[in-house]
Simulated assay, not measured.
Amino acid sequence: MKKLKVPAYDWRVVKELKRYALTTKAKDPWGHGKSSSKAFKREMTKLMLVEQSKRCGYCGCRLFEKRPHRDHIAPKEDYQQWMFWPENLVLSCFTCNTDLKKSFDPVVTMGSTYRLTEFSFVHPYIDTPTDHIDFTSGDLELIIQEKNGSLKGKKTIEIFDLASVERSKQRAKDIMHDDDVEHLQGDYRELLENAIEALQKKLVKVKARFPRPGD
């Protein structure tokens, strides 16, 4: 998990789509919108895939789906004004979006703007995960727990089942095939950096012993 940057998008289009979402008589403006809304969804998906390095915005695991889920952080059914708001959209894995979060409403207190709205779990764009969640090592495991009693951290771990054995196994598999360490936190990052450094030293020794012709 890492704090994400909101993908840059033409705010004139965003404001136009906001008006559309609030005034249209269409039953499903998100799923069956007009050409500009369909173009917005396609472009946002491309931008988010780059910003998120093809990782779930909630649990940090790899997105293997050909068409990753575009999740509305605040449900579009309840907050139509944010249906096409870039800051309210994130790509998520099937487990986080469909099995765990479902239609959960994380809005605790509505603010005068989206940024001033209070959310119950760690928001991918607004919050820094390490302010709320600790990744620490035990004797034989990496422990995930809320930091300094953070209610946001606790809710995030609970909603997305981050401390479960199966989800931990998935993160471990990702680490073994990963090189974008900025997505990793605490001991995960340190372990990977140490492993990469050790491997590089070993490769240097191997090359010294068995130089290729022309080296």
Rank of each mutant, 00 (worst) to 15 (best):
K2M: 05
K2E: 04
K2D: 01
L4T: 13
P7N: 13
A8F: 01
Y9W: 09
W11S: 10
V14H: 03
K15Q: 12
L17W: 01
K18Q: 15
K18V: 09
K18L: 05
R19T: 05
A21P: 00
L22M: 14
K27Q: 11
K27T: 06
P29R: 06
G31R: 11
G33R: 00
G33V: 07
K34W: 06
S37Y: 00
K38L: 13
K41I: 04
E43S: 07
E43Y: 02
E43H: 05
K46V: 04
M48I: 14
M48Q: 14
E51P: 09
S53V: 08
Y58N: 00
C61D: 09
C61W: 03
L63C: 08
F64Y: 12
E65Y: 05
H69I: 10
R70I: 15
H72Y: 00
H72Q: 04
H72M: 01
I73Y: 15
A74E: 01
P75F: 00
K76P: 09
Y79F: 10
Q81E: 15
F84I: 04
W85F: 11
N88M: 02
L91A: 05
F94P: 08
F94W: 13
T95K: 05
T95M: 07
C96L: 05
D99C: 06
K101Y: 00
V107M: 00
Y114N: 02
Y114I: 02
R115L: 07
L116A: 09
E118V: 13
F119Q: 00
H123F: 02
P129Q: 12
D131P: 04
I133D: 08
D134I: 02
F135Y: 15
T136Q: 10
S137H: 07
E141Y: 13
E141C: 10
I143A: 11
I143T: 12
Q145S: 14
Q145E: 14
G149F: 08
K152N: 06
G153Q: 02
I157H: 10
I159M: 10
F160I: 00
D161V: 01
L162T: 04
L162M: 15
L162E: 03
A163Y: 01
S164C: 03
V165C: 06
R167A: 02
R167E: 02
R171D: 00
K173V: 05
D174E: 04
D174L: 13
H183L: 07
H183K: 07
Y188W: 14
R189M: 14
R189L: 07
R189Y: 07
L191F: 06
N194T: 08
I196Y: 09
Q200F: 06
Q200D: 12
K201F: 08
K201T: 05
K202E: 13
V206Q: 09
V206K: 09
R212V: 04
P213R: 09
D215Y: 06
D215A: 11
